[in-house]
Simulated assay, not measured.
Amino acid sequence: MARRGFQDQLVSLEEDVLYMSELVSERLRMGLSALEQKDRELAMEVIEGDDEINSLYLKLEGDCIDLLALQQPVAGDLRFVASSFKVITDLERIGDLATNLGTYTLDAERDVYPDVDVQAIGDMTVEMIEDAMTAYENEDPEACFAIADRDDELDRLCERASEIVVRDLIESEIEDGEDVESTMADVSRLLLTIRDLERVGDHAVNIAARTLYMVENSDELIY
């Protein structure tokens, strides 16, 4: 009977981790939409919603600690709980990066560098998170490697986008009367946005790496 209760706790933990991932992915989408539309109300919703993600993280952290301390799982169950703890940590950090997008929206003065498709990069990161969580749910090692491979593509897109911004800034001539400080602030915001989206991809790979460890006891993607 005790064992059945323990298995129920494991199922509940998985369901809660998946729910947290859905919440985080939705907040990231909202942050991207706020940035694209310069929607200050939506940006504030993302920023204020970070408390919900943090509270859920702390709750699940406590659940993982209780399972480790009180149930003392072994082998596969131990890897599942330990990996789930790592997954929620990455999800919480993605939530922080989504909050950053909300803050950048509030600070934005104008559109800069339309040649840099931030939304396409953002869409890719959301897909990577969702694919990583599907791999976690389905215990799919092949999908874990696919996510790691896709991160290389994301890194190239982010590097190219940053190069465009920096090159254009170097080559541009500030017109008379143009607010240099405002221009530099907008450029800095865009570079930070690109950097944060690249970090979201890194967290998706971390989730895939922990999933691979959970399923096959392999640390190949962790290092």
Rank of each mutant, 00 (worst) to 15 (best):
M1K: 10
A2F: 11
A2W: 13
R3I: 13
R4M: 14
G5E: 12
G5S: 13
Q9M: 08
L13A: 06
L18M: 11
L18V: 15
L18E: 13
E22M: 13
V24R: 00
E26C: 10
L28P: 01
L28F: 09
S33N: 09
L35Y: 12
Q37H: 09
K38G: 10
G49T: 05
D50R: 02
N54V: 06
N54T: 07
S55Q: 15
Y57S: 06
L60E: 00
L60Q: 09
D66C: 06
L67D: 01
L68M: 11
L68F: 08
Q71P: 03
P73E: 08
V74S: 11
S83N: 05
S84R: 05
D90F: 07
L91P: 00
D96L: 06
L97R: 11
T103N: 10
Y104C: 04
R110M: 12
R110N: 08
P114F: 09
D115C: 06
V118A: 02
D123F: 05
M124K: 13
T125G: 03
V126Y: 06
V126T: 08
E127Q: 12
E127C: 06
M128D: 01
M128G: 00
I129D: 00
I129G: 00
D131P: 00
A135W: 03
A135T: 01
A135Q: 00
Y136T: 03
E137S: 14
E137H: 11
D140F: 08
I147E: 00
R150P: 01
D152N: 14
E153V: 15
C158L: 06
S162F: 11
S162D: 11
I164F: 10
I174Y: 07
I174K: 08
E175S: 12
D176E: 15
G177C: 03
E178N: 04
T183Q: 11
T183M: 14
L191N: 05
L192Q: 09
E198T: 02
D202L: 07
D202K: 03
H203L: 09
I207V: 14
E216S: 11
N217I: 04
D219Q: 12
E220N: 08
E220H: 09
